[in-house]
């Protein structure tokens, strides 16, 4: 694989992982505009653990993810007290605080950035990404996943049926933090340099767009959204000066045509329909 395509592939993996970090809370009804903050924590912490503490890279990635998950867990309690646009603002504010902290921390190189020694190539990044995708797909088929989607659709009714909405949302937010930490670790060990400027509001907005354009109803949404947003600008390179104009128009068209996202439950059912015809369950006498 050429260096160009290896680079695209690494970015694609990073985008997919970070998209899932936003999808998990979104699947339980929480919009996170602070993905960049969590990614930054994952990048700096895993980089520090592998470079300064000398831990093996995979262990550093794991620990970086756990550190980010812990921060997400702690921060979820005040953030989950907010709703709707206020939650969006709260997560955005969190990311800004993270940026402000790292830019002043000399131990992480402050504004100059932090060099990371160990290199993660595609042999590390791709399996990690596949692992995240499989984990999220698995999670969404579990009762916890069902609870998340129920809380997303109608929190009061989910509560009436015994779902602990707060537990579900905190869990989703924390797992999102862990996944964002993996994304940050991938970034740190693939680019070997962590600069806080890379984790700005634009990253948070783009990642949220991957999820919203891809669709929050199924675990396919963030995957399709991230693939679309990563590969489409590359595919449009044939028209160098117009590619971002065309890309912008495509996004607007998608929002008009498919306001619930590219992939919806109904669409998946239509695709599955001709292939899977389930026999109705037998009527059992009570």
């Amino acid at each position: 694989m050429s260096g160009y395509w290896a680079g695209i592939m690494a970015i694609l993996c990073f985008n997919i992982v970070v998209a899932y970090s936003v999808f998990l809370p979104a699947a339980s009804g929480q919009l996170n505009l602070g993905a960049a903050g969590f990614v930054a924590i994952g990048a700096y912490s895993s980089g520090y653990i592998s470079t300064d503490l000398g831990a093996p890279m995979l262990l550093a990635i794991l620990l970086g993810a756990l550190v980010t998950g812990f921060v997400a867990f702690v921060i979820s309690f005040p953030i989950l007290r907010t709703r709707g646009v206020y939650m969006v603002l709260a997560t955005f504010a969190f990311a800004e605080v993270v940026q402000g902290v790292f830019i002043n921390l000399e131990v992480f190189g402050a504004a100059a950035g932090y060099p990371v020694a160990a290199f993660a190539d595609l042999n590390v990044i791709v399996p990690l990404t596949i692992g995240v995708v499989v984990f999220v797909f698995f999670l969404m088929t579990t009762r916890l996943g069902l609870s998340m989607r129920a809380v997303h659709d109608d929190e009061p009714v989910a509560t009436l049926f015994g779902v602990h909405a707060r537990f579900t949302q905190v869990t989703a937010f924390t797992l999102g933090g862990v996944v964002a930490g993996i994304g940050g670790a991938i970034w740190a060990h693939n680019f070997n340099y962590v600069e806080i400027q890379n984790f700005n509001i634009l990253l948070s907005i783009f990642v949220l767009l991957y999820v919203l354009i891809g669709g929050t109803q199924t675990a396919f949404g963030p995957l399709i959204g991230a693939v679309f947003f990563t590969l489409m600008p590359e595919a449009l390179r044939v028209s160098e000066e117009w590619r971002f104009v065309i890309f912008g128009i495509l996004i607007i068209l998608m929002m008009v045509v498919r306001p619930e996202g590219l992939v919806t439950r109904t669409m998946l059912d239509r695709i599955k329909g001709p292939f899977i015809r389930r026999k109705p369950a037998p009527v059992v006498d009570s």
Partner: peptide, 21 residues
């Protein structure tokens, strides 16, 4: 007040939640 994005069986499984915590 069904969950509009869930299937019929998933909605019913939500009713089982209190038995599987």
């Amino acid at each position: 007040r069904l969950m509009p994005h869930l299937s019929a069986v998933e909605n019913v499984m939500l009713g089982q939640h209190s038995h599987s915590r």
